[in-house]
Structure formats: structure tokens, C-alpha cells
């Protein structure tokens, strides 16, 4: 039950941030999409993967090496992906704001690739995995101290069911 309510909280927060963006002057209301509304109690749902399996791993400053904690999370991700073959995943690499734009894009690519390699080594078909780097463009935490930076230096495995090709 606890995880269900936290899923609702996340969805509500995303809706709020979308609303706080008035769409005048051709700016539209783009931005990050939300997570599907599936209940995370269903172990084959994307929400379950996100919350219970754990969709993200964190990195040290300017590093793309996987920590022990990260490896444990990725082991669980690999198991889930192996038992839910209808899902594909895009692995997003991110950096904190302490760095230049281009370098952080390249650093995010390294992080996403480190995750991809780990999952492939655990048996996930590379055809199911894509990587993308957002560099420092998509922080989830917005303060400018290490507590936020630590959460922004991440690779997030975003799973989607039933994509073609």
C-alpha cells in the first residue's frame, strides 16, 4: 500500500509542475511525461519496476563506475527484464550541474552505457536496450548542494511495454 500512495504522489507532482507552466507565447506545456497510471502492486507493471525493483542508480562525481549498491539494483533490473520480455528500456544518463554542457552530455552517455553493459552481461538482449544522455539538462533535484547533486548523477532505466522493433 505504501508504494501505491507514493506513486500517486509522484503523478500528482508531475501534473502540478505541468500546470505551473502557463502555455502562453507559444511555449506550450511540453516537458517530462508522467509515468503510466498502472498500480505498482502488479509486479509486471512499469510502476512496479520503477518503485520496487528500483529504476535508477547513482554515481560519484565525474564517475561512471557502478557502485556495489548500483550493481545490486541492476541485478534486480536484469532479473525483472528477463522475466518481463515484453518490455523494452531506454537508459537515461544524467549529470549534475557542476560541469560544462557538452562534457556532461558525454558523461551521461558513459553512465547510461555502463548500465547497458551490465544488463547485457546479465543476459538482457541488447536489442531491448537503448541509451540516451541528458547531460545536466534534466535534474530531478533543484538545489545547488551535494544532497541534490548526488541524486542528479544518475542513470534511469525507463521501461515501456510492447514497443515495436
Amino acid at each position: 500500500m505504501r508504494s501505491i500512495s507514493s506513486s500517486i504522489v509522484i503523478a500528482a507532482a508531475l501534473a502540478l509542475s505541468a500546470c505551473s507552466n502557463p502555455s502562453g507565447m507559444g511555449w506550450g506545456s511540453g516537458g517530462a511525461g508522467g509515468i503510466g497510471g498502472a498500480a505498482s502492486s502488479d509486479p509486471t507493471s512499469a510502476a512496479y519496476f520503477q518503485e520496487t525493483v528500483g529504476d535508477r542508480v547513482l554515481f560519484a562525481v565525474d564517475e561512471s563506475t557502478l557502485s556495489d549498491t548500483a550493481r545490486a539494483t541492476l541485478e534486480a533490473q536484469a532479473r525483472w527484464l528477463m522475466s518481463n520480455p515484453e518490455y523494452e528500456a531506454v537508459i537515461e544518463g544524467h549529470a549534475d550541474e557542476q560541469g560544462t554542457r557538452e562534457y556532461n552530455l558525454a558523461l551521461g552517455a558513459r553512465r547510461a552505457s555502463a548500465v547497458q553493459e551490465f544488463l547485457v552481461a546479465r543476459g538482457v538482449s541488447p536489442a531491448r536496450l537503448k541509451t540516451v544522455s541528458y547531460g545536466k539538462e534534466r535534474p530531478i533535484e533543484i538545489c545547488s548542494v551535494e544532497a541534490c547533486y548526488a541524486k542528479n548523477r544518475r542513470a534511469v532505466t525507463v521501461v515501456t511495454a510492447g514497443l515495436g522493433s
Binding site: S17, A18, S20, N21, W27, G28, G30, G31, A32, E137, R138, P139, I140, E141, I142
Partner: peptide
């Protein structure tokens, strides 16, 4: 435009 965690860019 927009907050840091949902920045829009043109």
C-alpha cells in the same frame, strides 16, 4: 523557461 527540473528550451 520553466522550473529547473522541467525547463523548456527554444
Amino acid at each position: 523557461r520553466g522550473p529547473k527540473n522541467a525547463r523548456q528550451k527554444r
